[in-house]
Structure formats: C-alpha cells, structure tokens
C-alpha cells in the first residue's frame, strides 16, 4: 500500500475550510496531522498509486483546499510487477503501457 504525506493549504474562508475538513476527516484512508498556519498535514494510505492520483485530483476540485503538495511518499510495499496500470487512465500511461 502506498503511503504519502501531503501538505494542504486550506482556504481562508471559514465555511469552505470547514467543508474541506469534514471531507478529509470522513475519508478513512487519511490520517490528519497538525494544523500549521494556513495549512495542514495529511497522511494518505491508499491501495494503489492511481488512488493517490485520484485523491489528489479530487482535492484540487475541493474549493476549501487551495493547494495540495506531496512532501513524502513510500511505495516500498509495492512488489515490482504487481501493479499494472489500467489502460486508458491517463495519457502518460497510454504512451507507456
């Protein structure tokens, strides 16, 4: 299971931020860290790199999350060859099946 650490910059609007926080807290894959200044650290444990990628895309579409920076990752559980990217997920992967 990949594990990633993120630094999220949250919105300055109270309502948007609260909504985002609720969303994050409801996600069982996430462990929330400290609130630091305008940001917050989050640890994500997902089933595959694609889930990570989806998570990131979802965050970018959440109005209460201004930025999502990946600061650390660990893919050491992933045995080589055990992960096959499903075809058609992204243009990059299509070029390199």
């Amino acid at each position: 299971m990949p594990m990633t650490a993120w630094l999220l910059t949250l919105s300055e609007h109270d309502d948007l931020r609260r909504e985002a926080m609720a969303l994050l807290a409801a996600d069982p894959r996430l462990t929330l860290g400290d609130r630091l200044g305008p940001g917050m650290s989050v640890i994500a444990e997902t089933c595959s790199p694609d889930d990570d990628s989806d998570l990131w895309l979802a965050w970018l579409q959440t109005p209460g999350i201004v930025l999502a920076d990946l600061v650390w990752s660990d893919f050491s559980d992933l045995e080589p060859g055990t992960y096959d990217a499903p075809a058609g997920r992204s243009p990059r992967r299509e070029r390199n099946p």
């Binding site: 594990m3 650490a5 993120w6 630094l7 860290g33 400290d34 200044g37 305008p38 650290s41 650390w72």
Partner: peptide, 24 residues
C-alpha cells in the same frame, strides 16, 4: 513498520510546513 512509516511521514510533513514558516 506501517506505524513507523506513518511517524516518518508526519515528521516529513511537519518539517515541510516548518520550511514554509508554518509554525505556531
């Protein structure tokens, strides 16, 4: 191992935040 990784991840996130001056 997972819990250790998680601690490391938290520390990494914390220091990344610190690098931006995001400290209480």
């Amino acid at each position: 191992r997972r819990t250790f990784l998680k601690t490391t991840a938290l520390a990494a996130a914390a220091s990344a935040a610190a690098a931006r001056g995001w400290t209480p």
